[in-house]
Nucleic acid binder design. Structure first.
Length: 624
DNA sequence: GCCGTTTTCGGCCCGACTGTTTTCAGTCG
């Protein structure tokens, strides 16, 4: 069973509540059971149709939006939104919680939401959601996506003009029917027209690396502005998220700094969508939104904290301040009107009684509680990486030969590297068969004899066939030191088959690492449907290792999965999957992801010295 | 809908900017 380290406080809170005398002093468990019949049972949550966490989260998101459109209590709406976010961040499947009571223990999940999750898991349906859907026209949710339209205005469109869809809105605008509708002035109307014309341009998230390419010159531009002391990219970018929705740029400087003017002049800016003395929002030519904020140096730390987020982390921090009769905002931490911290982030954390928390952890996944306990992980850094266990030469689909790749690896400070060219398989260019691999083994032996202070490990990235067999025979695999097994096709198998296929592959006696375990490509291809929990359990008991593939489009494992691997004691191999020497730079992306997954250097196979890595690899060999 | 040193009811983070208003609601982050 996975230990949810992130969610211990609820148990502490329960313990406290048990000691408190109440007018009707019945044991909490009993009183909770009375409040919701669903919590009285402890039957397994499994057995129904397979419903994943994302499906549950989406249902809660939809509940929140439909309730908002109906004009329901905003705190009730917020409860659904927080629940959706919590479910997305869970390191394990809801169906693995075992009982409704276990769900109820999660922070922000009470008896009602627990029973709704239970209902969805068991039946694949949520009655409350279906009822809401029947009351709120489907198209209204689409209207919420338009800039300037929130629940109140969508409701006004629906009740005032009978506008229920984007098409209705377009017609109403064309017919001038929005004139006179309270709250819909000419500016808003032209904004809506523009948004409808842009229509097809859907909101997108950008790869971190893409965002980085746009952030660097923009920051340089802002740094040169008179009065600017510092420029930092905050937001999800600073938290190292695999994709970012926009760039949040914090500018520290004097109050006279004209940040809006500076952005207007920037050649990459397409339009300015909002601009005030301390805040300015623009769209870059490629459509990327940039939110910038100007603060005085005395507030820089508090502003950086606020602007880095996540929203949920900020909420918790502000609540923490409130509980201490303090107020936290982007200008500082205040007792009454007196600012007691805010110049640096560390000041603010210290004043709130906890150590500084690395941005990658600020997702309200238990980091504040870990900080309270003094148990924040010492996150891995790029300099901890000793070698790379997944790289390709031009023998298969790489672009450089063995010598060039070794030179590049050394230039990146690595001390060892496994050459893991592809096996022969459908669609893989120039994959190696057993004979070519045998010749490469000889070539590597000869090279190692000449190398000093660097070792090339002999390996392969062997394909996992549709039935779970491997594309190379054991006779050649046994001569290798690193066998990276990978799925490169048949992505659409049903969950049970896909899982069985991968588990069978891991049964192979020489497999050391499962490459890019879920096969997802960011913004392109979803992860294949697989029971990740089973894969981790198999990796632990077998044993073998799981890869965190550092290619910016893969970043596979994701952050939550990294944490599951860590908690189950499965070492992670942070791999470049280099196809040229330049790709070793991608290891930095893997490190960001690993840090978001709470990994320390001890949790990472290739952060260990070669002798230890070899010993670990030896453990994975089930036959010799 | 959740939660509890605010405690079983009555709260629930905080501020900037915009547009449409004449003091503020709505939206956004």
């Amino acid at each position: 069973m996975v230990r949810l380290t992130g969610h211990a406080p609820r148990q502490l809170k329960r313990a406290a509540s048990r000691t408190r005398p109440t007018a009707r002093s019945s044991p909490p468990a009993a009183s909770r059971a009375r409040r919701s019949p669903a919590t009285s049972g402890s039957a397994s949550l499994k057995g129904g149709p397979h419903v994943g966490n994302e499906e549950v989260a989406s249902a809660f998101d939809e509940m929140a939006e439909l309730l908002a459109i109906k004009g329901e209590n905003r705190f009730r709406i917020g409860a659904y939104q927080r629940a959706a976010q919590l479910v997305r961040s869970l390191p394990k499947a809801l169906s693995d919680f075992g009982s409704v009571e276990a769900l109820d223990e999660l922070p922000g999940i009470g008896p009602d939401l627990a029973s709704k999750i239970d209902e969805l898991l068991r039946s694949g349906r949520m009655r409350a959601l279906n009822q809401l859907r029947s009351k709120v026209p489907r198209g209204l949710r689409e209207l919420l996506r338009l800039p300037g339209l929130g629940p109140a205005r969508v409701r006004a469109l629906h009740s005032g003009l009978g506008v229920d869809t984007v098409a209705d809105l377009r017609q109403a605008l064309d017919a001038g029917r929005l004139q006179g509708l309270r709250g819909f002035g000419s500016v808003l109307q032209s904004g809506l027209r523009a948004a409808l014309e842009a229509g097809a341009r859907q909101q997108q998230r950008w790869l971190w690396t893409t965002a980085s390419q746009h952030a660097a010159p923009l920051c340089a531009h802002l740094e040169a502005v008179a009065g600017v002391a510092a420029v930092v990219v905050a937001g999800s970018y600073r938290r190292g998220c695999e994709t970012v929705g926009d760039l949040d740029i914090l500018v520290t400087g004097s109050g006279k700094t004209n940040i809006g003017g500076a952005l207007r002049e920037y050649q990459g800016v397409r339009e300015v969508t909002a601009s005030g003395p301390t805040r300015c929002t623009v769209a870059l030519r490629n459509g990327m939104q940039v939110d910038s904020r100007l603060v005085a140096p005395i507030s820089a730390g508090a502003a950086l904290l606020y602007f880095t987020g996540s929203k949920q982390h900020n909420l918790r921090m502000r609540q923490r301040a409130q509980a201490r009769q303090l107020k936290l905002n982007e200008y500082g931490l205040f007792r009454g009107r007196k600012r007691i911290a805010g110049k640096t982030e560390a000041d603010v954390f210290e004043a709130l009684g906890i150590p500084w928390i690395p941005p990658e952890l600020r997702e309200d996944r238990g980091e504040i509680e870990a900080a309270e306990r003094g148990e924040l992980p010492e996150l891995i850094e790029l300099k901890d990486i000793q070698g790379d266990l997944h790289a390709h030469t031009d023998a298969s689909d790489g672009h450089e030969d063995l010598n060039q790749l070794v030179a590049a690896a050394r230039a990146h400070g690595l001390r060892f590297m496994a050459v893991t060219d592809h096996s022969r398989y459908l669609g893989i260019v120039r994959g190696l068969d057993a004979d070519r691999l045998a010749r490469q083994i000889d070539e590597i032996d000869a090279l190692n004899a000449k190398l000093r202070d660097f070792v090339v490990l002999k390996g392969t990235e062997v394909d996992i066939l549709e039935d779970g067999g491997l594309a190379l025979p054991d006779s050649i695999l046994r001569r290798l030191e690193v066998v990276v097994a990978a799925v490169h096709g048949h992505f659409a198998l049903p969950r049970q088959k896909q899982t069985a296929r991968i588990l069978r592959a891991l049964d192979g006696p020489f497999v050391s690492i499962l490459a890019h375990p879920t096969g997802r490509l960011l913004n392109e291809r979803a992860a294949y449907d697989v029971d990740f929990q089973k894969i981790v359990e198999t990796a632990r008991s077998r044993p073998c290792f799981l890869e965190l593939n550092s290619q910016p489009t893969r970043l596979d494992l994701n952050d939550a999965m990294c944490r599951v691997a860590k908690e189950q004691g499965v070492l992670v191999s942070i791999a470049s999957d280099a196809h040229s020497g330049l790709d070793f730079a991608d290891l930095a992306a893997g490190i960001r992801q690993a840090r978001r997954g709470w990994l320390t250097a001890r949790d990472v196979l290739n952060a260990r010295p070669l002798s230890e890595v070899r010993a670990q690899l030896q453990r994975t060999r089930l036959a010799t």
